[in-house]
Amino acid sequence: MANTYQLSRESLTSLFGALRKDGRRILAPVESDGRIGLGEVEAPAQVAGDYLQTIMSAKEVAFPKVERLLSYTITPGQVDLKDAEPKAAPTVLFGVRPCEAKAFGALDAVFNWDYRDKFFNARLEKLAVIGLSCTKADEACFCTSVGGGPADTAGSDILLTPVADGYLAEVLTEKGTAILNLASDLFKPGNGVDKVAVAAKVEAAFDQPALTAKLPGMFDSEVWVDQSLRCIGCGACAFVCPTCVCFDIQEEADPKQGERLRCWDSCGFHMFTLHASGHNPREVQSARWRQRIYHKFSYYPQRYDQLGCVGCGKCTRACPVDMNLKEHLTEAAGVTA
């Protein structure tokens, strides 16, 4: 039950000012050398004007590529452990797409089922998301095939949808209301704009529930081998993915002190599952490619009752060898058992 308002384009300047006055940093898509990435901004004018998506996902705001988990000092016969505290600055993520906003839910599912991950939580707690509906899409996009949409509200605290002269603002959560309260005069009564008419048209490409239902029965299908022959086994897809959560824990130390770091990892790397003995449960690239698909579309739904994919298409855009996830899922959905 969203509270709907109108927000003029000009009023964003005041909104940004109010957020910053409240001690929050604002991260938004910015352009640099033709690349769109998240950067800290002070004013709306610094936000990239016309972008489809950032290359990297917003996950690094809550789950950075390298993060210290603990440190220690070593003296003879003694080790002194030191807990690490995540640097969690109050942050507003402005202008991320609905697919990415939704992805925080998939990360949360892993980081907080059973054991709770304080590093992720500390950052997420201080994060508010002002999403921005998509008015265009490209061939990599497939949000509507995975239960999302170009104006989907899931994961946003406030969702903005561009309309003439400004935005339709849906205030969706307590965090959203808190932002509204910082500058309530800017949020004018809504006028009942049909946001679906404004939002990008993204055709559903495949029947995801049907695909999820058939995956367990097609584990040994040749389709994974065929698709993955050109995969070079790098981690680009996983690292740009807003929901890929797999990580490595690495030690960096000298004889007197050290620290333990969490680093992004990818199931596509052959080292990921390699045992010290040399045995590798996923020996070939096709098994690793299949794991990527199954983890997101079969294991996630079984385990967390949601998908591990939001259809943002970042992996497809980042892939050096054009592994197109939408296309490959569509192909898999069409395989007759």
Partner: peptide, 16 residues
């Protein structure tokens, strides 16, 4: 192979 031991890092994931 495991890294986290607490169901997060994904390394030991086999099926669901």
């Amino acid at each position: 192979r495991m890294k986290c031991g607490v169901g997060k890092c994904g390394r030991c994931n086999t099926g669901k």
